[in-house]
Amino acid sequence: MLPWLLFVGGLIGLTASFVLTVERFALAQDPDYTPTCSINPVLSCGSVMSTPQAAVFGFPNPLLGIVGFAVVTATGAALLAGGRLRGWYWLGLQGGATSGAVFVHWLIGQSLYRIGALCPYCMVVWAVTVPIFWYVTLRNLHRLKPADRRLAAVTRYHSVPLACWFTALVALIAARFWPYWSTIGIAG
């Protein structure tokens, strides 16, 4: 399962990051450009792209996604082809997946509570980053402590934490933007 998750999740994240990069460059060339993912006041890539949070390290954040998801995709492809990766590689992948998960959660907080808008392509990145982090972490923990009963229980019910995470994220989004949803008839 992990090789397919890395390959498909990496491709999805890579595609979303690439599209975001193209949109960001188009917006940089023409300030009047409306990104394809700017749908309404809440789902608005343009609103998110024009903030300092969109270039935390001095360049557009999606460039990090292009690099990171290319590595994830290549890792999945190598595993699907029967490759065996060394421990140091898995530790590096864990570091990258953990950094990506931390960064994504910071961006979620910024989108919800500072910027007040959501970027649909960014949400796609969120949706693939967390499962990649979770399953890489489970794989690495299992390799460190294969006989740990608690880890075996977590592994058996591996999808529960992800379901809880997605449910919590949807609840946070619904609560944060409830006034908007209710005015357009979605909420009631």
Rank of each mutant, 00 (worst) to 15 (best):
L2D: 00
P3W: 00
W4E: 11
F7D: 00
V8R: 02
V8E: 06
G10C: 07
L11F: 13
L14V: 02
T15G: 13
S17K: 04
S17E: 04
F18H: 13
V19N: 04
V19W: 07
V19H: 07
T21Q: 06
V22N: 09
E23Y: 07
R24T: 15
L27E: 10
A28D: 08
Q29R: 15
Q29W: 11
D30I: 02
P31E: 15
D32Y: 05
T34E: 13
P35S: 09
T36K: 15
T36L: 15
C37R: 08
C37K: 06
S38M: 06
N40P: 00
N40F: 01
V42G: 08
G46N: 11
G46C: 09
S47M: 12
P52R: 14
Q53F: 15
Q53T: 13
Q53E: 15
A55H: 14
V56E: 10
F57P: 03
P60S: 07
P60M: 09
L63H: 04
L64I: 13
G65Q: 05
G65F: 00
I66Q: 05
V67G: 06
F69V: 07
A70P: 00
V71Y: 01
T75C: 01
G76Q: 09
L79N: 02
L79Y: 00
L80I: 08
L80N: 10
A81E: 09
A81G: 14
G82N: 08
G82A: 10
G83F: 09
G83M: 06
R84N: 13
R84E: 13
R84M: 11
L85W: 00
R86Y: 05
R86Q: 14
W88Y: 12
Y89A: 10
L91P: 04
L91H: 12
G92T: 05
L93F: 01
L93I: 01
G96F: 03
T98I: 06
T98S: 11
F103A: 14
V104P: 00
H105K: 09
W106L: 11
Q110R: 09
S111C: 06
Y113W: 15
Y113M: 09
R114P: 00
R114T: 13
I115L: 05
A117C: 05
A117K: 03
A117V: 07
A117F: 02
L118I: 14
P120I: 04
Y121W: 14
M123Q: 10
M123S: 13
V125S: 07
V125P: 00
W126H: 14
A127M: 05
A127I: 03
A127L: 08
A127V: 04
P131H: 05
I132P: 05
F133R: 00
W134G: 01
Y135N: 07
T137Y: 09
L138W: 03
R139K: 14
R139T: 12
L141Q: 10
H142Q: 15
R143W: 10
K145G: 05
P146F: 02
A147V: 06
A152I: 03
A153N: 13
T155V: 13
H158Y: 07
V160K: 06
A163K: 11
A163R: 11
C164K: 11
C164S: 14
W165S: 02
W165D: 04
W165V: 05
F166C: 09
T167E: 05
T167C: 11
A168W: 03
V170T: 12
I173Y: 02
A174N: 04
A175F: 13
F177C: 00
Y180H: 13
W181F: 12
S182F: 14
S182C: 09
S182V: 15
I184A: 07
G185W: 09
A187D: 03
